[in-house]
Write a protein that binds this DNA or RNA. Structure first.
Lengths: 353, 353
DNA sequence: ATCAAGTTTTGAAACCTTTCAATTCAGGGT
DNA sequence: ACCCTGAATTGAAAGGTTTCAAAACTTGAT
């Protein structure tokens, strides 16, 4: 590690003790303060000549609007926020992209926070966002039943739940039908003729995991099989490394009873599992077929392309943001719960070549 | 897609027309407004009894500090921002995690923005952040020589360049030595006995790409080979899909002149290339050895684990944030350029088994 | 009782922008 | 010359918080 310092120290410090305000502009342009404001907010009300003069002064002085004062006066900001559950999971970054699209379209700023799956951090962010008087909060909550969420919206800051379903009493929500997704995955594996199927994922405290597994059991039931035939391989998180460890456990099972297919609660797990299988000489899909969930870009890019349950990630984000913006602007707004349908994308990890 | 609406409409709307202010609290607690502020900011100056009473009233009224007013008075916020280049690249999300660590430690809020590699969007964010009077801006710029960056810091908002080196006159920067990284990668491939090496990446407008390739050429030179012996496979972006397309082009070369090794400008490219090779029956590393760059988590998780040049991503972020905070608080602050050293992590994609 | 030395509380000013009613201005019509 | 109209400009108030000098109160000592 190399460090360089400039000889001169801090060259430009102290040059601008305070940035110029509308007042300074008004004085320099020899107009009233109200006129400066008009230039900023209703340029059509200002004569051509004055407007140009004021604008020139603004440039010369380097005037930058003070958003705090603006908000204070206006009572509300033009910022919305997304509190995401896990910034390192591509699923959520794609959702965020969708949100950003909608926010940009509505000329709103988007403030992204990462709760990192920690309730305490989530709570801290919620409080800060309320203090900032953001226009609304999109959140994939650690726990969708957390009463804090209700408090926030009761308090006047609209909240939209993303990728979970909250109480319809208090907020809109946009999610994908995880139960159906679980069903689809298992149906596919049954179609492929698999008899011994494992479900990989956890902890059960994560709603997405519960729902996907519920769907998996339902699919078994409908196929005339007992839901208990599913071998449950639990994990502590939905990460690549947990997937690897699940792979070790599966590899350790006696060949005769070892599952021939695994349904993973998300793609990170599936990729870890896939890697471990390859490392241990279990071929995919011949010895073990694998289905993931989310269809992140890396799923298709794996050396054995991963079959996965695709969710409309961008749409999810965009729709959520649109609901939020509607709640902000439309007095007639009624809370809605929108449920998207997932879709199986079959690739090499389940297809015999 | 299914939509549900609640029968009752919007249950709690209009309940809180305006959230209570310090003034409301003061009235309800029968103290002066200054005392309420003291409870908030200097609780030790307030008698036990009064403090409790005021706090109780705050809870009852559901008082939430108005951050705009606070900032307006204080002249500065307690927020810093990171303008990231590509939210879907795990490298940057890891950097962001490092920043967040430092910010959390200093009890600052972090505002994350995604320029998505677009200069216009970056400019828009910079302007908004200045308007918000953030305490400082961390940025991985689309173009580190953009004069806008200098303007921003001249204007009083400290700017720290992350993963690039800017003008030391005006800002600190924290980067990893990309030239060295390129060197290390090629040295490794030469060590493994490769003669025909390709470099994959682009566009050249991206500084990271230029530097890594410069290092690659230097390594050739030092090994007594001509830099021109490197076959350059250009791409339009640093993405998985561009990596796949590069793979097609390499596969299309005649066997006799086809490179036996490829150095990719980042891991996304390398993963795409790897996938395409597998799909086209080119075995890795026997027919083509691959070195990536960044060592993102997915690199190790690929079915053929990827050799890659690791950068201390979290440290990068943390250090950058610390420099920014120093610039905010330390009058003696001198701009620094910190350069971290990358490190090669050899894995299966270059190792003959 | 009185005073000094704290401790606690108060009230007013300041931060910067926006809004809106009121004022001034310019020009045309009589 | 005068009035009217519409356009342009002004000035003051408001919004919620923090700060700080000044005022009020407490306590203990004389």
């Amino acid at each position: 590690m190399v460090t360089t310092e400039p000889g001169s120290g801090r060259p430009l410090r102290g040059t601008s003790p305070r940035s110029p305000s509308v007042k300074d502009v008004a004085v320099a342009a020899e107009v009233s303060l109200g006129t400066v404001s008009n230039v900023l907010n209703r340029p059509d009300r200002v004569s051509e000549r004055t407007r140009e003069r004021v604008e020139r002064v603004m440039r010369e002085l380097g005037f930058v609007r003070n958003e705090s004062a603006r908000q204070l006066r206006a009572g509300r900001s033009s910022t919305i926020a997304y509190v995401m559950l896990d910034a390192t999971n591509p699923f959520f970054t794609d959702v965020a992209q969708g949100i950003e699209e909608a926010a940009e379209h509505a000329d709103m700023s988007l403030f992204i926070c990462n709760s990192d799956n920690r309730a305490a951090r989530e709570a801290r962010y919620l409080q800060r966002l309320q203090q900032q008087r953001v226009q609304g909060i999109l959140i994939t909550p650690v726990n969708p039943d957390d009463p804090t969420l209700d408090e926030v919206s009761r308090h006047g800051t609209p909240v939209v739940i993303v990728d979970r379903v909250g109480s319809i009493e208090n907020h809109c929500s946009v999610a994908v039908d995880d139960v159906l997704g679980g069903r689809v995955a298992i149906d596919h594996l049954l179609d492929m003729g698999h008899e011994r199927i494992a479900v990989v994922g956890g902890p059960q405290s994560i709603g997405q995991v519960r729902d996907r597994f519920t769907g998996a059991r339902a699919a078994m039931q409908d196929a005339g099989r007992s839901p208990d035939d599913l071998a449950v391989v639990g994990t502590d998180a939905l990460s690549v490394s947990e997937g690897r460890s699940a792979g070790e456990r599966i590899a350790g099972m006696p060949r005769s009873s070892r599952p021939t297919a695994a349904f993973c609660a998300n793609d990170l797990l599936a990729l870890g599992l896939l890697q471990q299988c390859v490392a241990l000489g279990i071929s995919v899909p011949e010895d073990l077929a694998i289905v993931g969930y989310d269809d992140i870009d890396f799923a298709a890019a794996a050396a054995v392309p991963l079959t996965s349950v695709r969710q409309p990630r961008r749409d999810l984000g965009r729709t959520a943001a649109e609901l939020l913006l509607d709640e902000d602007s439309n007095a007639e707004h009624a809370h809605q719960q929108i449920l998207f349908t997932p879709e199986l994308v079959a690739r090499g990890s389940t297809r015999h070549s």
